Amino acid sequence: MSELTSENQPEIDILLPFYGDVALMREAVHSVLAQDTGGWRLTVVDDGDAEGVPEWFDSLADERVRYFRNPRNLGVTGNFQRCLELAEYERVTLLGTDDLLAPNYVRTVRAAAARHEGIGMIQPGVEVIDEHGEPATGLADAVKHRIYAPRVREELVLGGEPLAASLLRGNWLYFPSLSWRTEAITAIGFRSDLRTTQDLALELDLIERGERLLVLTEACFKYRRHGASVSSTMATDGDRFREERALFQETARRFGALGWRKAARAARVHSGSRLHALTQVPGAALGKDRAVLGTLLRHAVTNR
């Protein structure tokens, strides 16, 4: 077996769909520029109109960085899809505006992809941080790691119905940290009818098509957990769970027809999503919002 070098490892398109906090976006960009190896290109697609952003990118004067501003607002899903249209390298990462790459991200992912040629998805090790960039240990991530995520000592390859069932019980992946095989993700793309569950829907579609997931232990990504994100806001007003319920029902039917009985049952039960809804109940009760409270309780304890 020949020794793996940077020359025979796949290159990565790091795609950053941007709309929102300019300061956080700059932090994310600087984290890419601080990579300890080459073999990457950063593409930023700006879906907003904040002043000074194009000029800031011009000042970087870095040929590894491409910047585009959409002539009209495409929304979250539309901008994600636009990013995919610009991908040209063998692998892609869809970096969140408020997340950070550790300096070893590209090196770690490229080496892993070379060891597992053709792997559809790579989940590297992730450190969760708060809005100030400090390590965070919240309930959501504790549940992910202790209940739903598999135990991985070195690295682990998963796929098929067992992986689908695992993610339907509780989605333990960190979407912005994932490295995707470009040909696989662009063949499916993002569903325009979803706002916060595009990640799970995409992962399940890829698994159904036979793509596998490689799970790594080396931490090389910093995922920011805070209450201002779209998914967090939708969780507090109940919209997230209405969307999740529809996706779970659809998936249960689909996997049932496929003969994936364990995965279909996991979709019907969706225990992780129910638990998440329960954690939002106290806030809804204190806010005396009966409509949201009803949505949360219905999602947590019924299949209606």
Rank of each mutant, 00 (worst) to 15 (best):
A201P: 08
F175A: 13
W172K: 02
W172E: 05
E203C: 10
P176R: 03
R240T: 05
I185L: 01
T186D: 00
A228T: 15
A219T: 14
A201T: 03
F221H: 05
T197S: 14
Q198N: 15
Q198W: 09
W180A: 02
A201R: 10
A201G: 06
K222C: 12
G170S: 07
S177Y: 02
G170R: 00
T197A: 15
W172D: 04
F221I: 11
M234K: 11
D199E: 11
V215H: 00
I207L: 11
L202R: 03
L194V: 01
E183H: 06
R224A: 09
K222S: 12
L216P: 07
S192K: 14
L206V: 11
R209L: 14
R195A: 13
L204K: 06
A184E: 08
A184R: 06
T217C: 04
T233H: 09
S232V: 04
E244N: 12
C220E: 00
L247I: 00
D237F: 04
E243C: 07
V230W: 01
E211L: 05
D199P: 06
H226V: 05
L216R: 04
S192F: 11
C220G: 03
T197Q: 15
K222F: 14
T197I: 07
T182Q: 06
F241A: 04
L194M: 10
A187L: 10
I207C: 02
F248D: 04
R242F: 09
F241C: 03
R191S: 15
Y223R: 10
R191T: 05
R225N: 11
E243M: 08
D199V: 01
T196S: 10
D239Q: 15
T217S: 06
L178E: 02
R209S: 10
M234A: 14
R242C: 12
V215M: 10
R225K: 08
R225A: 12
L214D: 02
F175L: 11
L200M: 12
S192T: 12
L213I: 09
T197H: 15
A228C: 09
R242Y: 08
F190L: 07
D205T: 03
T236E: 09
S179T: 15
R181C: 06
L202P: 02
R181L: 14
D193V: 06
F221M: 07
L206H: 04
S232E: 14
S231R: 14
K222P: 01
R195E: 12
G227D: 12
V230T: 15
V230C: 08
R212Q: 12
T182H: 04
A184P: 04
R191H: 15
W180T: 07
F190I: 01
Q198G: 05
A187M: 08
S179K: 01
A184G: 02
L247G: 02
F190P: 00
G210S: 06
S179G: 13
A187N: 08
S192M: 11
G227L: 09
F190W: 10
S192Q: 13
T182R: 13
A184S: 13
R224D: 05
A246G: 10
L213H: 04
T233S: 12
V215R: 02
E211M: 03
E244V: 10
R195G: 10
D205W: 03
T233I: 12
F190D: 01
R212I: 00
